[in-house]
Amino acid sequence: MLELDKLVKLVGDGIEAVVTALGLGPTWVTLVQLIVAALVVVVFAALVVLFLVWWERKVSARFQMRLGPMRVGWHGTIQTIADALKLLQKELITPANVDRGIYFWAPVVTFVAAMAVYVTVPFGKGLIVRDLNIGILYILSITTFTVIGLLMAGWSSNNKYALLGGFRSAAQVVSYEVPMALAIVAVVMLTQTLSMGEIVSQQAKFYQWYIWRQPLGFLIYLVAATAECNRTPFDLPEADSELVAGFVTEYSGMKFAMFFLAEFLNMFTVAAIATTLFFGGWNGPFLPSWMWFLIKTLAGVFVLMWFRWTYPRLRVDQLMSFAWKFLLPLAFINIVLTGLGIYIFRP
């Protein structure tokens, strides 16, 4: 059917032929191939974000018995493009007393960290930029830069709401990263590999999905991931009723858009990781693999949106004690249970 791996191979070979014809070595071939792959991923990410923004507005509207954006395009489908154009035209305001260098780099760091994850996300059969053998560990470690970006934004804005938002976010993400990593460790104990591609290929059949062997791990991951991307009920870093807009308070125009983009990308990322680790990645019958990946991942994103319009926001102290006193012990119990299971069921 509509598998894309042949196309990818074709394009890769084409690049190799062209670059070699220009008289350049194999290093250049790899370089050009990677640059093209990066461009494709960036475009894909931009499209995903455009769609997600529209979808979030539609979903939230339906939850509140509204219609949401309806005017621009069919059911408001190109509303986000109109908004993006508006943001592009806006003046880039740099407030007077900001720490200029850090203020400039903060959105860049956040955005690049959010993008860099996609190096090793398997989008479909043969659709992975680099199947790193430290795959999932790479994803975990590169996402920490997002927080650094938020902290930089919070500090450099010279605004107490921004500072509070940035530090709340850092505290929250650092706390929830621990149970999230431990939930992933339990899966890795079963897969015995960190490579995303191999984890997917181990779950070819429906009954091989790791969710069946890691239900508790999946729940822990789901909660921690919601907190990781600062979504309700864990959206304290940008709780508008308390902190105006948190760390993005002083940002305008494209810089704001970069934070916005990174935020939606992170939502897609955590859903993609959940798909890969627990729901068999791109494996599925009838439809092409990339379509299965998109369906599963968007279903995950929908769950995150569903949370947003269902639960009220937690208090800061509740948030912290939930992570350290409930989720963390649960994650340890999950690891012990997984170890016991491996000890009993594997020879």
Binding site: I134, L137, Y138, L140, S141, I142, T144, F145, V147, I148, V174, E177
Partner: peptide, 9 residues
């Protein structure tokens, strides 16, 4: 990866 995770994170 461990370096980034522990030192940066």
């Amino acid at each position: 990866a461990a370096q980034v995770l522990i030192y940066v994170g």
